[in-house]
């Protein structure tokens, strides 16, 4: 199972998206879905860097990505502050310009783009697991 540890810095989002794309492409996903997978992985990693490791220097987290049958599994493991994405309220997409909230949009996109999004927090850290079946 390929697992890569990345520094918790936004400059590495590019590499995380590339890693996910390579595995999804080899797994037979369409380019359209690969874009969705990259976006979901980016939003997840951004949340870890921005929230779990807010104010923490030299932090890192690992990304594991693999195919299981016709399903891609993207897993991220961090040791930062736990951030329960299931507790994030859905953004009001009908709100007008002035009232539109941008917070929670990343989590919302992850849920919409993936088949399953699961978050678990324990002494061993936080684990986010997202899956999507090949169309």
């Amino acid at each position: 199972m390929p697992s890569i540890t990345y520094p918790a810095r936004f400059e590495f989002l590019d590499e995380i998206r590339d890693m996910v794309a390579d595995i999804a492409r080899a797994g037979g996903f369409s380019e359209k879905t690969i874009y969705s997978l990259q976006l979901a992985a980016d939003e997840a990693a951004t949340n870890i860097i921005e929230h779990a490791y807010a104010g923490v220097k030299n932090a890192s987290f690992s990304v594991t990505c693999e195919m299981q049958g016709d399903k891609i599994i993207i897993m991220m493991h961090d040791n930062g502050k736990s951030f329960d994405s299931s507790a994030v309220k859905e953004p009001n997409l009908k709100a007008d310009l002035a009232k539109r909230q941008i917070g929670g949009l990343g989590v919302y996109l992850m849920r919409k783009l993936m088949d399953t999004v699961h978050y678990e927090s324990s002494k061993a850290g936080n684990v986010l697991t997202m899956t999507k079946r090949r169309e």
């Binding site: 989002l13 976006l39 939003e43 951004t46 539109r100 941008i102 949009l105 996109l109």
Partner: peptide, 14 residues
């Protein structure tokens, strides 16, 4: 490519 970070910039500018 554009993630929600870009959407946020668009929203603020609009």
């Amino acid at each position: 490519y554009m993630s929600s970070a870009g959407f946020r910039a668009l929203l603020a500018t609009q």
